[in-house]
């Protein structure tokens, strides 16, 4: 594959995020590694609180001031993001790395028109006239499927529906033709019927414009449809990463298998049989965390799971487990 030899657009190694709390240090994200190439879509899946959103904000440099970020490397196209100044980050944000947030109802400023906000996105980074920016805004609104684009420019966010607003947010993210878009659950807050539309739009546009995308979601159905690469996140770690076909075709980590059993699959899931669940709750990440975080919920856990967990598998499909085969053939898991 040519992609593997090409230098990745974004390369993250050992990203860790710690949040000091009154009860101790919360190790919210613990040593994340991944590579993302141009035009690729990486889906990060995981439960709420697994650190997906924090990871995306860490790349953007938009973490709250109290969160401590450390990383061996966060290389974006030759720029070391861990060493970038605030000013440097600001020139990247919105221009080369854009972000789409979860809540379209609140992520647009209620006091300004759609046009103002779209035009601002471009003019913050490009020395273009108001007319040029306006033309670009109309072009992109049409591209995201908004009819009567020109008249929409003078409308305010409260005059648009949730789906339309998310289209505007997507158009805004594309204003400067970014190389990377981070979409943090972009369809979660929308009606189910709109979700599919917005998602296909996003995927279509990123493919067409050759934009890399990190799509954060907890919807495995979405992942199966759009991902080139999948990262499964659990309790602040990427427990399994790999090409989508591999992760779905042969999930190695017990947690990934557990997640996949939670969704019905045509032909595989028996009628009338209850769907799988993962018993137990996510462990607390406050204070010292060692060993496998999933051991409290894993059917195959032994005492060895308290120790350091080796990385298994071969790039690009890797996972964290004490079992070389992720206990794939062990008994006891519901088929």
């Amino acid at each position: 594959m040519t992609q593997e030899t090409e230098k990745p657009l974004l390369s993250v190694r050992g990203l860790a995020l710690d949040i000091p709390l009154a009860s101790g240090m919360l190790h919210a994200v613990r040593g994340i590694d991944f590579d993302l190439h141009r035009g690729e879509t990486l889906c990060i899946v995981g439960e709420s609180g697994s650190g997906k959103s924090l990871t995306s904000l860490a790349i953007m440099g938009l973490l709250d001031k109290n969160i401590r970020r450390s990383a061996e490397r966060m290389d974006f196209n030759g720029i070391e993001l861990t060493k970038a100044s605030n000013r440097q980050m600001r020139t990247l944000r919105g221009d080369r790395i854009a972000m789409i947030f979860q809540e379209p109802m609140t992520s647009l400023n209620p006091a300004y028109t759609i046009g103002d906000q779209l035009i601002e996105a471009l003019r913050l980074h490009r020395k273009v006239s108001h007319q040029v920016a306006r033309a670009r805004a109309i072009e992109l609104l049409e591209k995201v499927g908004i009819t009567a684009a020109e008249s929409r420019l003078s409308q305010y966010p409260h005059q648009l529906s949730g789906g339309l607003r998310q289209r505007v947010v997507i158009a805004m993210a594309l204003m400067c033709e970014p190389e990377l878009i981070i979409a943090d659950e972009p369809t979660t807050a929308l009606d189910v019927t709109i979700q599919a539309q917005i998602l296909s739009l996003l995927v279509e546009l990123t493919r067409e414009m050759n934009v890399a995308m990190i799509l954060i979601t907890h919807d495995l159905g979405v992942v199966a449809r759009v991902a080139d690469k999948v990262g499964v996140m659990y309790a602040g770690e990427l427990v399994e990463t790999g090409p989508a076909s591999d992760v779905f075709g042969q999930p190695m980590h017990p947690y990934t298998r557990g997640l996949l059993r939670c969704i019905p699959q045509p032909g595989k899931t028996e009628r009338g049989k209850p769907l799988g669940t993962i018993p137990g709750i996510v462990p607390s990440l406050v204070g010292e965390v060692s060993g496998c975080a999933f051991r409290t919920r894993c059917l195959h856990a032994t005492d060895t799971c308290r120790e350091a967990i080796p990385e298994r598998g071969e790039a690009p499909h890797e996972f964290l487990c004490i079992y070389p085969d992720g206990a794939l053939n062990a008994e006891g898991e519901l088929a």
Binding site: R90, F101, E103, S107, L108, N109, A121, V169, M172
Partner: peptide, 13 residues
């Protein structure tokens, strides 16, 4: 609020 985060994500100073 979210729209302030959006403004920062756009690269506003």
């Amino acid at each position: 609020s979210d729209y302030i985060r959006t403004a920062r994500a756009k690269g506003a100073g």
